[in-house]
Amino acid sequence: MRADMLSTILNELNGSSADIEASAIISTDGLTMASALPEGFDEDRVGAMSAAMLSLGDRTASELGRGTLDQVLIKGESGYVLMAYAGSESVLTILAKTNAKLGLIFLDVKRAAEQVANLI
């Protein structure tokens, strides 16, 4: 039931912007709870890598005096990876296109993360 609701949140998120190519909700231990990933993506790797990056981001923000972590953004040649906490025990990760409108995506991800946090 909760898995279905998480999937619904992800599908709505992916549908909110053509720039979002994939999304997943992951436990802070790196296990995927729900995902809407294109074919060819390894769910386990996306999950574990996202949680690891967020953990490292958390630590970096703290060590370098940037306070509580809000999100981790990675920009690559082929697009973006955005990770944000969805509550204290889960992570929301999205993959976005290279020309994505980041302002809108930040907003959509924040809303979705709040929905996930309330659900979990």
């Binding site: 574990a48 690891a52 630590r59």
Partner: peptide, 17 residues
Amino acid sequence: RISGMSRVLFTNLANAY
């Protein structure tokens, strides 16, 4: 300790690869 990663997360990451 430095990365803040839990041992479980590290194990899951290693298993994924």
